[in-house]
Nucleic acid binder design. Sequence first.
DNA 1: GTCTATAAAGAGATAGAC
DNA 2: GTCTATCTCTTTATAGAC
Lengths: 176, 176
Amino acid sequence: MQVFIEHGYDATSVSSLAERLGLSKSALYHHYASKERLLELALDEAMGSLEAVLREPDATVGSAGERLEHVLRRAVRVLVDKLPFVTLLLRVRGNSEVERSALERRRTFDDQITVLVRAAQAEGSVRGDIRAAVATRLLFGMVNSIVEWYRPAGPEGAAELADDVLAVALDGLRTR
Amino acid sequence: MQVFIEHGYDATSVSSLAERLGLSKSALYHHYASKERLLELALDEAMGSLEAVLREPDATVGSAGERLEHVLRRAVRVLVDKLPFVTLLLRVRGNSEVERSALERRRTFDDQITVLVRAAQAEGSVRGDIRAAVATRLLFGMVNSIVEWYRPAGPEGAAELADDVLAVALDGLRTR
DNA sequence: GTCTATAAAGAGATAGAC
DNA sequence: GTCTATCTCTTTATAGAC
C-alpha cells in the first residue's frame, strides 16, 4: 500500500512491491494472483469501511442534520484509520473492470450522502440556496482532500481534525 | 490532455496519444521530445496560471480578507478555464524531476495562501481557532476537488460555481 | 513458500525513407 | 512533417527446482 501511494498504482511495478516486502516477485505471486488483485482487495477495504458508516445507528435515526454531521465525522475517521486504502480509492480512474466497479460503488455512496444533504435542506438545518449535489461534492471534496496531506504522526489527532472539518464545512471560515 | 486525464499520465501510452491525434507515434515525437515533455508543458501552464493570480492587483492591495476572497474566486476560475492542465497538476506524485519540480512550485503557492489566511486571522476576518495551515488545506481541498466532477457543459457556470465555493467555505453549510 | 530463469507483451524512443 | 519498421528496456506473469 505504501509503495502504491508513493508512486501511484500504475507507476508501481510488482518488482518494487516485492523488493519493499523483502521477497522475490514469484513469492509475491504465490500469495496474490496479480497486481490488480492487490488493488481490488485495497479498494474493497476502503469502500467497505465507508459503506459501514452509513449503516451505523447514528446515521439512520435522528434529524437529517444530526445524521449528516455524524456521517461526516465518521467519514473523516475512516479516512484517517484506513488512510492508504482510501487514498488509493480516491485516485482510481476506471482503467479496468476492478476500478470501474469501485467507482460505481463510490457513486452509490455519494448519492446516499446527497439524499441526506437534501433532507437536511428540507428540514431547514442546511442552507437551501446551493444544490444538494454541489454541496455534497464540495463537502466531500474537502473531506477527501485530507488524504493528500494528513499524516498520523503530526500534531493533529483524528478527532481534532474532524472538529476542524465540521467547523469549516458547517460554520465557515468567516468570523461573525 | 484529454487522454492523460481519462487514464492518468502513467497509464497513458504514447501510442494512445498518437492514435487520438490521428498521427503515428513518430510524427508525435517529431513535435515533442518525449512523453514527459508533454507533462512538463501542461504542468507549467497550470502553475503559471495559478501563480499569476497571486500577482493580480486585487490580490496585493486591500484587507487580507478581501485579498483571500479574490484569490479563491480567481483560483476557481483558473481551475475551470484550465481544467485539463490543473487536473494533471493535482495528480502529480513526484515520480520524476519534472513532477518534483511542479510539486515544489505548488508548495510555494500553498505557502503564500497560508500567509494570507494567517493575515486574515490576525485582522479578525477569519476565525482564529483553526491553524492557518489546516484551514488553507481544507479550503484548497474543497477548491481543487472541483476538477474531479465539474464539466463546463453542465448547468453551472464558472462564476456561479465560485459563488457556491465562497459561500460554503466562508459562511458554511449550516443555516442560522 | 521461496527462489532463479524466462516467457510474452508492451512501453518509450529512434532510424531512415518519402 | 509523416510514415513503417525496429531497437531496447521494462513490464506482468509463469515454469519448475528446491
